[in-house]
């Protein structure tokens, strides 16, 4: 049956930046697989109006940050719309540079975003473990903090770190539904906390948080390749917010955040 005639005089596609996606082979992809090349990732994202992406390498989280960070730079060479982000570890075991050295490496490579996966990579975020790293990043480069869930210890730790390291901009990544009673006071108490929306699948959630804490505190993400783009994309596009707020969440908040980097 032919599609009905429709008028799209005001229908606009908002160009988006994906703040949470990975390149490279993964151990447990969905049926559609992973993105083994930058070209493939860009082509898929273009279907959704995603013109740029803050990307990391899958091996940085599934194997080791040092290996993945290096592979990332090779994979995105000559892909100007893919913005690199590196994973970090605490330095105590000698497997990762000390924070001052790591900051220099970031600066030298022009990398303006750092990620940590403390649950998955089995380290604590207490100051006696990660405090030096946080202090080095504070005021220098935003931190994308990937969580398994916003459970009680994680929420308490996010609160403690964000209120201890006031100049550290923290983007909470990979949240789930049912978090409003925690995320609302957390973001109100800590103005340096941001939310990546890729897993925020709560009914009218983006609309709610826009009113509760402000649309200027959220950044759009997809969690590619593990997650389909359609769901988080639709959550943003159908949210009952004005187009300025939608553009802020979709792209300009992340641009503003990355512009906070010291280089």
């Amino acid at each position: 049956m032919a599609a009905p005639l429709r008028f799209r005089t005001i229908a606009l596609v908002i160009e988006l930046i994906d703040s949470n996606c990975a390149l490279g082979m993964v151990s447990r992809p969905g049926p559609a697989g992973a993105f083994l090349s930058a070209d493939d990732l860009e082509a898929h994202q273009a279907r959704f109006g995603i013109g740029k992406a803050l990307v990391y390498h899958s091996l940085a989280v599934e194997e080791h940050p040092t290996a993945g960070n290096e592979l990332l730079m090779q994979a995105i060479e000559s892909h100007d719309n893919l913005i690199p982000s590196w994973l970090a570890l605490p330095h105590h075991t000698g497997e990762f540079p000390k924070p001052e050295r790591f900051i220099e490496e970031l600066r030298s490579a022009g990398v303006r975003a750092v990620r940590i996966f403390p649950d998955q990579q089995r380290f604590l975020t207490d100051d006696w473990v990660s405090g030096e790293l946080f202090e080095a990043l504070a005021g220098q480069v935003p931190l994308f903090w990937h969580i398994d869930s916003l459970d009680t210890p994680t929420a308490r730790e996010l609160y403690r770190v964000s209120t201890t390291h006031h100049d550290l901009q923290i983007v909470i990544c990979d949240v789930d539904k049912m978090i409003n009673r925690t995320i609302t006071p957390l973001m109100r108490e800590a103005p340096n906390i941001w939310l990546e929306t890729g897993g925020y699948r709560t009914h009218r959630g983006i609309e709610y948080l826009s009113n509760a804490v402000g649309a200027d505190r959220m950044v759009f993400g997809t969690k590619l390749p593990w997650q389909a783009v359609g769901p988080p994309h639709a959550e943003l596009m159908y949210a009952d917010i004005d187009d300025d707020a939608r553009r802020a969440i979709g792209s300009s908040n992340l641009e503003r955040l990355l512009a906070m980097a010291a280089w």
Binding site: R47, K177, R201, T202, H203, A228, G230, P231, A234, Y238
Partner: peptide, 14 residues
């Protein structure tokens, strides 16, 4: 409203 209606709607639509 346990989840957003748009979550899986976007999945099927795309």
């Amino acid at each position: 409203p346990v989840l957003g209606q748009t979550w899986q709607m976007g999945n099927v639509a795309h």
